[in-house]
Simulated scan of single mutants.
Amino acid sequence: MTWTVGTYVVYLLIAVPLTIWVARTLSRNGEVFLADVFEDKAELAGAVNRLLVVGFYLLNLGFVMLYLRSGSAVDDLTGLFEAISVKIGVVMLVLGVIHFMNVYVFNSIRRRSRAEALRTPPLPPQGFVPPAMAYPSAGS
């Protein structure tokens, strides 16, 4: 096994579990947040959470696989550590950006849900209310 192949193996052994851990953490905490957003619709909150997790996996694991290839051959242990540090650093930055995008989406959904709740009248209409009549003033 060459140092380059060893770099690929170490990279995958770090990047894939890291991605899975972040996805599970986002899923667990996102589920609570989505349950708050979709108050009476727990099933919808769960479905949205699962769809976001699937998208997260597809995007990040796809990036991990595309970023696997090394630009140059790795010749020694020092090169392996340098290549891994760059690769894992970039993967962590991408995971962080995707995390903040998820938080932004969650917050947008929550904000829209709160705005909808404010637009709903507190009571249903009770019937026709005639316009106020103009009464003559006492001094005229």
Results as ranks from 00 to 15, higher is better:
residue 95 L to T: 03
residue 73 A to L: 08
residue 105 V to M: 09
residue 61 L to D: 04
residue 77 L to Q: 07
residue 47 A to Q: 15
residue 83 A to R: 10
residue 126 Q to R: 15
residue 28 R to Q: 11
residue 79 G to C: 05
residue 16 V to A: 04
residue 91 V to K: 01
residue 74 V to E: 02
residue 82 E to C: 11
residue 8 Y to P: 02
residue 122 P to T: 12
residue 125 P to V: 14
residue 119 R to E: 12
residue 44 L to P: 06
residue 53 V to Q: 09
residue 80 L to D: 01
residue 88 I to P: 01
residue 2 T to H: 05
residue 36 D to Y: 06
residue 29 N to A: 10
residue 130 P to W: 10
residue 53 V to T: 15
residue 4 T to R: 00
residue 106 F to N: 04
residue 31 E to C: 09
residue 15 A to W: 00
residue 66 L to D: 07
residue 60 N to C: 11
residue 89 G to F: 07
residue 64 V to P: 00
residue 125 P to C: 11
residue 66 L to Q: 09
residue 132 A to D: 14
residue 4 T to K: 00
residue 29 N to Y: 15
residue 94 V to D: 03
residue 31 E to V: 09
residue 22 V to P: 02
residue 128 F to Y: 15
residue 111 R to V: 14
residue 13 L to Q: 05
residue 69 R to S: 10
residue 119 R to C: 11
residue 101 M to G: 11
residue 126 Q to M: 12
residue 20 I to P: 02
residue 17 P to G: 04
residue 38 F to H: 03
residue 49 N to A: 10
residue 38 F to V: 02
residue 82 E to L: 15
residue 91 V to T: 04
residue 89 G to D: 06
residue 97 V to M: 13
residue 85 S to D: 08
residue 113 S to A: 15
residue 48 V to E: 00
residue 94 V to H: 05
residue 121 P to K: 12
residue 79 G to Q: 00
residue 38 F to E: 02
residue 90 V to M: 06
residue 132 A to V: 14
residue 53 V to C: 08
residue 25 T to V: 06
residue 96 G to H: 08
residue 121 P to R: 13
residue 86 V to S: 07
residue 42 A to R: 08
residue 55 G to D: 05
residue 43 E to R: 10
residue 90 V to C: 05
residue 132 A to Y: 12
residue 114 R to E: 10
residue 62 G to A: 07
residue 42 A to H: 06
residue 2 T to I: 07
residue 9 V to S: 06
residue 21 W to R: 14
residue 48 V to C: 03
residue 140 S to G: 14
residue 96 G to D: 02
residue 132 A to N: 12
residue 98 I to P: 01
residue 40 D to L: 09
residue 94 V to T: 05
residue 35 A to W: 00
residue 37 V to I: 10
residue 56 F to H: 08
residue 140 S to T: 13
residue 109 I to K: 06
residue 110 R to C: 00
residue 90 V to S: 04
residue 8 Y to T: 09
residue 101 M to K: 08
residue 6 G to T: 08
residue 106 F to Y: 15
residue 34 L to W: 01
residue 35 A to Q: 05
residue 99 H to M: 14
residue 30 G to I: 03
residue 2 T to V: 09
residue 61 L to F: 07
residue 16 V to K: 02
residue 58 L to V: 15
residue 139 G to C: 10
residue 78 T to H: 11
residue 109 I to Y: 13
residue 120 T to P: 02
residue 116 E to P: 00
